[in-house]
């Protein structure tokens, strides 16, 4: 064996074999990368959004993600790759709403990419375009009516009591509704419809 020289042609062949061992998976319909990279650039302009640049696609986030453990199609690393390539279809994808914002990915990320925030930004893009899942709308409407994202039931209150937690009191529903109305959000919320429908993601 001579370590200083190598048979390049053989090496190339092996490298090729390795790289494309999984090539049958490749989707043959190509997608275009938008020439202005608008989506990516918009994300980069937002606070925390610029941490996206640091992503080197190691996939640790996907390994850490509790959702990915249950649902193979939920892949934070792949979501970031789509953002990097300015693939707006991500923002239209209902899947990103499954994110729990548990921040496991962010804690593990070796390059300190703010992954949950970037996904939130993608959701915002989706919202702006009307890509809102019914659950999100329901939540928002519950805030208007209850002052909370969820309705508090009697058993919940009892459990809190048993655990010795302080009383929740009643939220300032009225003031909240007025404040939101002043911002024009109430009107928006009333007119918006989920394009996904409301059944699937419960």
């Amino acid at each position: 064996m001579n370590t200083d020289s190598l048979d390049t042609s053989r090496l190339m062949r092996n490298q090729f074999k390795l790289r494309f061992a999984k090539c049958e998976l490749i989707d043959l319909t190509p997608s275009s990368v938008s020439s202005d990279l608008e989506f990516r650039n918009w994300i980069l302009r937002q606070p925390e959004g610029k941490t996206l640049r640091r992503c080197y696609q190691c996939g640790r986030c996907t390994g850490a993600c509790p959702i990915a453990e249950i649902d193979q199609s939920f892949n934070p690393r792949l979501f970031l790759e789509k953002v990097i390539l300015a693939d707006e279809s991500l923002a239209e994808n209902q899947l990103i709403w499954t994110c729990l914002t548990c921040e496991q990915c962010e804690v593990r990320c070796p390059e300190h990419v703010k992954i949950p925030q970037i996904l939130i930004l993608a959701k915002v893009r989706g919202l702006v375009a009307g890509n809102t899942p019914q659950t999100a709308l329901d939540r928002a409407r519950t805030i208007l009516s209850e002052g909370r994202t969820i309705q508090v039931s009697d058993p919940m209150l009892k459990t809190r009591d048993k655990m010795g937690l302080p009383s929740l009191g009643s939220p300032p529903v009225k003031q909240l509704a007025e404040a939101l109305k002043d911002l024009g959000l109430v009107e928006k919320l009333e007119n918006i419809e989920s394009i996904y429908g409301g059944d699937r993601d419960e």
Partner: peptide, 15 residues
Amino acid sequence: CRIENTLESMQRDVI
């Protein structure tokens, strides 16, 4: 340019 992106398992066209 057509690129095989192994990390998405899909092809991308870039101008």
